[in-house]
């Protein structure tokens, strides 16, 4: 029996649900599913320009595992571009960084430093806040 997949830490989930090509005749009906951790790998390596070792530490996985996730992400994006497929963001094996909260009334996202006592929104002071999920 294979070993259980360890969860990958993701700081912030992608801000989109998917991407769809336009200006093509006949969209391929099958979508490419980009996992949250794959999005995170692309973001860390190619947007934040981090080294793989560093990025792997941030996601709580080994460097080879990071490299595999990153490769899979690149291949999926390439496949989507070439085969004009839609990309869909899927949760995957991610665990979201717990330190972020979201205000339910003004949708601001924020952290609560340890020294803070109250759990209210720093902007609108609403008490309706919850840890950021999905």
């Amino acid at each position: 029996m294979p070993r259980k997949i360890s969860l990958r830490k993701v700081v912030a989930p992608p801000r989109f649900q998917g991407f769809r090509p336009y200006g093509v005749n006949g969209l391929c009906s099958e979508r490419v599913e980009l996992l949250y951790e794959e999005y995170e790998a692309i973001k860390l390596a190619d947007y934040d320009l981090m080294h793989h070792t560093e990025a792997a530490r941030l996601m709580g996985i080994s460097r080879p595992t990071f490299a595999r996730i990153y490769e899979s992400a690149r291949r999926k994006i390439a496949q989507a571009l070439v085969e004009t497929r839609e990309i869909k963001a899927v949760y995957g094996n991610a665990v979201l960084d717990k330190s972020w909260y979201e205000c339910l009334s003004c949708h601001a996202r924020f952290t609560i430093p340890r020294s803070h006592k109250q759990n209210s929104c720093p902007l609108c002071a609403s008490e309706c806040v919850e840890p950021l999920k999905n």
Binding site: F110, T111, I112, H116
Partner: peptide
């Protein structure tokens, strides 16, 4: 004590966390 921005990079986030500066993200 509090920074309001749209996104924080991993290094900035670590540092701000360490100094207990609250981060607020507005989309």
């Amino acid at each position: 004590g509090k920074v309001i921005s749209g996104d924080f990079g991993p290094k900035a986030k670590d540092l701000l966390d360490k100094f207990e500066i609250q981060m607020v993200i507005l989309q």
